[in-house]
Amino acid sequence: MSTKTIVHTTINGDPVEFLCEPRQSLLEVLRETLLLTGTKEGCNNGNCGACNVIMDGVLVNSCLVLGVEAEDATITTIEGLASPDGLHPLQQTFLEHAALQCGICTPGFLLSAKALLDRNPDPTETEVRYWLAGNLCRCTGYDKIVRAVLDAADRRDRVTR
């Protein structure tokens, strides 16, 4: 089991190479090998969404992707969401709406919400709720999270008009 493979990726815009064992998940590689610990582990079996990252434009549970499957992939993690100009609108609205309490699920929610707004810039409340069904939050009851996502969509809408 100790044979390692070299994997070439682009993570948050930078070329990143890492060595990993076939049995290591992308989540483990991000957290333990690359020390990108903003991606969280809540269940390690795809039920909670805390480990969500965007891989080649698709929202994935990084605990369900093997590290070796990331060869040639382009990955966005929470560490890559803000730009040098400032926070992503979702990060800003999450702060303003108090859409986090403990904050452990927040990175996953932010990536999930970004993936939603990237494909549906003007979602309804119901669309937001169903899109976020794969992300568990135990602190907020989702109320302020849903409001923060809708508000971020509104703000982006205003900017593009």
Partner: peptide
């Protein structure tokens, strides 16, 4: 502590 928690910078126990 908000910015640290929306950027992934906050250090939780397992981090």
């Amino acid at each position: 502590d908000g910015v640290d928690k929306v950027t992934g910078r906050a250090v939780f126990g397992a981090d």
